[in-house]
Amino acid sequence: MSAVDAAALTAWVREFARLVHEQRDALTQLDAAIGDADHGANLDRGMTAAVAALEAQPADDPAAVLKTVATTLIKTVGGASGPLYGTFFLRAAGALDGDDGRALAAAVRAGYDGVVARGKAERGDKTMLDALGPATDALDEALAAGKPLGEALGAAAQAAAAGRDATEPLVARKGRASYLGERSAGHVDPGAASTTLLVEAAATALAGRG
């Protein structure tokens, strides 16, 4: 079993960038319904820049891969998703200690805690946490049950997608969508949608690792 090393994490980042680019217009349409119609374009710009930064200066150290993604997203995304995704990768980089599935799960948990602290949101507020929270829990539970990393990430991706879909009837309580009040109900949250892509990308790119 090959490790969750710098190459593996780079593959995760590349797959996330690919999915964001592919779903760019769909993400922007979700954001047009309840936000300012820039989420797909912003995240696509940020992840394209992150992939370019990793190509320009490939990192040997797994934590350095996540740190590069963090600083690139912070610089290039603009809007709230820059500091939120940036904090996820920054805290994950700081917590990553090892190159197996458990180390990855601990890093993801630290990233999740960072997003909670930064955004001051709770699950059910119709934010990215509604996908990231269930995914983080599912990853930990599956690994604790002895499942291999690929399978655990598959479970995490399913949990993220279910959490994303469950944001549709919710009324937004954070961010720009919260200005809409009741009118924000009936639309899937764009942050939860892009976060689901992040977890799905991990399931695809890291299957067979750890």
Binding site: T71, I74, G78, G79, A80, G82, P83, L84, G86, T87, L90, R118, G119, G175, R176
Partner: peptide, 14 residues
């Protein structure tokens, strides 16, 4: 307002 606050908090971490 808004993301200016989140970005300022993130800056502290850097």
């Amino acid at each position: 307002l808004g993301s200016a606050v989140l970005s300022a908090e993130t800056a502290l971490e850097l």
